[in-house]
Amino acid sequence: MVDSKQQWKAWLYLAPAIVLLLVFTVWPIINTVRMSLLENYSGLQATAGAQFQFGLGNFLKVVRYRQFTQCLKNTCILCFLTVPISTILALLIAVALNSIKFLQKGLQTIFFLPYVTNSIAIGMVFAAMFNIVGSFYGTENELIVTAGIINNVIEFFGGTHINWINYGSSYAANIFVMVVYIVWNALPFKILVLLGGLQGINKQYYEAAKVDGTPRRRVFTKITVPLLSPMLAYVVITGFIGGFKEYTSIVGIFGETMGPPDAAKRLNTMVGFIYDSLSSNSQGRASAAALILFAIILVVTLINNQVSKKRVHY
């Protein structure tokens, strides 16, 4: 029953959403593709009346750009380190949480806490924890006054302190800090979803396994993980999508310099590259980079779906 009154009513209700989506979602999609295909497109020059040639130059330039490859590398390293680590850790915590009764609710709440934080604000706390505090901060001549709580702990166990994020710190140390912070940040969502999945598994499967004397490890690998696989796939996909869009957590730790004072931009990511291009008024390059990011996310999602089809039991 499609009467005409319902027709125009429906469009009336949808009107605000449609207008806003047209301006701020649909037009940007078209425009991004357009700008990416105009050689060296710049918004500033465009308003001045400049004309741009049609071509794939932006894409080629972006791919050849050393800064971009560094960004891509950083993004991939962070993604492929943090997603598996946080997923496995979250799985272990969720399984452990699911197996206890006493303190379960309280611990669950604690594990969810990092979710309700501002990633820039808590990034500053992590930076403070890893920071070597000294005079002449940010220069070569920095004098260590206190090595920061993490280094204090390392020294307590007999190690030597490490320059994590300060002037002269190594790339590996920087990445380590980022991985710790991103994993810490990613745990709550994953634990929440996985615990929800675990609680949805019929208890009888476990009773049946118990009757058959199934060892704990086998219950985990043969029953829990396969039955949890849809949730695991979901957590991994959203993890990768989030990982490829990593940006603010690095700003949280390192600030806008995206790296230690002596190596600015060393930890820049894909999203960071897009914003840098935007602020230097190279919209053509930014658009090309954004489309490349979209393509990567699309490919990762498709691969994931493909793997899921074979491995995931629904």
Partner: peptide
């Protein structure tokens, strides 16, 4: 599916 950064430019 589309990352928000793509919209930001325009």
């Amino acid at each position: 599916m589309i990352p928000g950064e793509l919209f930001t430019i325009t």
